[in-house]
Computed example of a mutant assay.
Amino acid sequence: MDRETRDMLLETADRFFTERCGRDVVNGVEKDIWPVDFWKAIEEMGLPLIAVDEDKGGAGGSLGDMLAVLRLAGAHAVPVPLAETALANLLVSAAGATPATGPSTVALGTLALAGNRLNGIVERVPFASVARRFITVANTSDGPKVAVIPASSATVTDTPSHAGEPYGTVSFENATCEFVGSSPLGVDRAYELAALVRAMQMAGAADKVLATAVEYCKQRVQFGRPISTFQAIQHMLAELASCVAATIASAEAAARDADEGGLAEGGGFSIAAAKTQASDFAQRIAAIAHQSMGAMGFTHEHVLHHYTRRLWVWRRDFGSETFWGEKIGSAYAKAGPQAMWPALSASRYAA
């Protein structure tokens, strides 16, 4: 999409999420109430198919377009598998197939694929119990393959996340795949893209946490004046703003690098850096926000926890800061000292 079209898309999506994704919807998912109408509206808007080619029923947008919408989804704590379905549809379409309708999720791990049969176990699969199908990428003797497995062929053990969303452990025991196709990207790349999706969602959620904390501190009056005028609170909000700014900047840079570098390999270092940054700051962002808002920030009635609990969960999804930090360190150690500066300055957004 060109810039004007993307801006129109984001404006429409933002307005839609504001109107349709209220606290009742988010809280309802925590009580196992699937928001049928909300998901139907999301599909009618074509949001899960943004990065799918038009000849496969999609909007013909880019990876960058998809990631921009998912950042908005993070900013609204969207409690349905929009991100997972959008990524799953992208993987399926990249393998030459037309994505099916309905909620899907990605199950990325060490899996064995032989013919159209899949074996293995994947833990912490988001929205496992509501997905109609699971999409994975597996390495085979013929190269990487994308596999689509219907929910009826998998066994799900529910383990809700700390955000109350239906995560679970998924077991594939000689599961029959409804589609298997050659993939232009391998297992590691699929995991990178999933990490990038989470980094963008975390950027959106972190931005909302900052706005919420700042607004509250401006309105909360203590000793006759807003607490935002107290020096201690100002220091806290300044630190919060710096953490959020770093999270957003690294995620946006990674999104641009990945979009411009190509689906199969673009922005690998930037993605690792962005997920490391976002996961590392997630706990600090949540802690400062709750501390600045005092008791109000800890109540279930306030919306702050919709974002901070998701930051805690997304911090671990598709690799924590430790996982990606080790990846970066190992790559530098293997490449040698001369490789560090070229890698750091490779992105034209590095400055």
Rank of each mutant, 00 (worst) to 15 (best):
L70G: 02
A68I: 03
T157M: 10
S141A: 15
H300F: 15
T247N: 02
N116S: 12
T85W: 05
A351R: 10
I33E: 15
W324H: 15
V146H: 01
R23A: 15
A73R: 03
G102E: 00
A331V: 09
I233C: 10
L108I: 06
V170N: 03
Q338W: 11
E19I: 10
R309I: 04
R316M: 01
A95R: 00
D317W: 02
G109I: 07
F223H: 09
E326I: 05
L9Y: 03
A258C: 08
G268S: 11
I50D: 04
D53A: 15
N174W: 10
L311N: 02
S182T: 07
K56A: 14
N139M: 14
Q283S: 04
L82Q: 11
A343M: 13
D32R: 15
F17L: 13
P35M: 09
V209M: 05
G181A: 12
P48W: 03
L72P: 00
P79A: 10
T212V: 09
A274N: 04
V92A: 06
A241H: 09
G224K: 02
G181W: 04
F127R: 02
P126I: 05
I121M: 09
M236D: 14
Q219T: 13
A232G: 05
E43D: 07
K40F: 10
P337V: 11
A114H: 13
S279N: 03
I42L: 15
E260F: 08
T140M: 11
Q219Y: 08
G96D: 00
K334Q: 12
F172E: 04
E215L: 15
V137I: 12
